[in-house]
């Protein structure tokens, strides 16, 4: 009950945030963003022709009206039709978002889980050679550009010069086997790149927690070191860890997907967004921007609720 009230209150509190984000991005899109007028129009147009096309696109309406329309679209999740392909935007996103999620989720989960495990191992052996090795490799991983990792992995795992195990590009998924084949290399690449950052972050959080008084008390009462880490300290560290994980979700869904999908030629929402930006497809952009804002508000709500679950001192006031 308390939780339900809290959720509703938080969602209501999220409305101004959504309004703010959408307003600013809409403003930027309208005045500085891509414009389709000159792509749809022939050479040497008359001012009348220009006005006609702009009217068709809805560019001639006053800003306030266009923004209000936008909010209505956001409320109903009906964003009209893509300017470039004519496909209904909701259908387009309904088709591509699942692809992106399927593509990103394994790498995201593995990247965090493996990093957490490495961080626990490093923290357990802190200042020892195991720790130094893990931290050293993290720095190496962090300093290699994603593009190079992708190309290297494609050559090693997918090309005829290397192991040739997986398809290089594309997304032709009809069975779990196909899914595994297409998702394997992108997953390995994202895990490789995320691992360094995540491990370093998690290690520093855990090591910091290990200096606390309650850790000394636990040790004074004979808690074995491994148990101390995975049972006592891990739960104490959950707040920064949850914050990092949940808040990276919206970013990963949009920008992470955009990069991976471009490199691997996968038809997900990232690719759709990228094409919408280059072609000035405003209905699609509006939908993506609005949904991203929504996702951030949801992420905030989820973190707040999870905080309460891991730390009794947090109240759902």
């Amino acid at each position: 009950m308390e939780l339900l009230q809290y959720t509703i209150r938080k969602l209501l509190a999220g409305i101004p945030l959504i309004l703010g984000v959408t307003f600013v991005s809409f403003l930027l899109m309208v005045y500085f963003g891509p414009d389709q007028t000159y792509q749809l129009i022939g050479k040497n147009p008359t001012p009348e022709q220009i006005a006609e096309v702009r009217a068709q696109l809805g560019y001639d309406k006053p800003f306030v009206v266009r923004y209000a329309d936008y909010l209505r679209e956001l409320g109903t999740l009906d964003f009209g039709f893509s300017d470039s392909t004519g496909e209904k935007v909701s259908v387009l996103l309904g088709r591509t978002i699942p692809v992106s999620l399927a593509l990103i989720t394994p790498g995201f989960i593995l990247g965090n889980l493996v990093a957490l495990m490495l961080a626990l191992i490093a923290a357990h052996h802190r200042s020892g050679w195991v720790d130094k090795m893990i931290m050293g490799l993290s720095v190496v991983g962090m300093s290699i550009s994603f593009l190079i990792v992708v190309i290297a992995f494609q050559i090693v795992f997918s090309s005829s010069y290397g192991l040739g195990l997986f398809p290089v590009r594309g997304w032709n998924v009809h069975s779990p086997g196909d899914y595994f084949a297409y998702v394997a290399v992108p997953t390995m690449a994202t895990v490789f790149v995320a691992l360094g950052y995540n491990t370093r972050f998690y290690r520093s959080v855990i090591v910091e927690e290990l200096t606390r008084d309650h850790v000394r008390t636990a040790r004074a009462f004979g808690v074995p070191p491994a148990r101390l880490l995975y049972r006592n300290v891990l739960k104490n560290c959950m707040i920064p860890i949850i914050t990092r994980i949940v808040f990276s979700i919206p970013l990963i869904v949009i920008s992470g997907a955009l990069i991976i999908e471009t490199y691997f030629g996968i038809p997900g929402v990232g690719k759709v967004t990228f094409e919408a930006i280059t072609s000035g497809d405003q209905p699609v952009l509006k939908a993506v921007v609005g949904l991203t804002a929504l996702l951030f508000v949801l992420a905030q709500l989820v973190t707040d609720i999870l905080y309460r679950a891991v730390d009794p001192r947090v109240s759902l006031k």
Partner: peptide, 16 residues
């Protein structure tokens, strides 16, 4: 067994 100087922080805050 040891009883520590700092009662406020000696116990783990996230467990009962």
């Amino acid at each position: 067994a040891m009883v520590f100087q700092e009662p406020m922080t000696a116990l783990n805050p996230v467990f009962t």
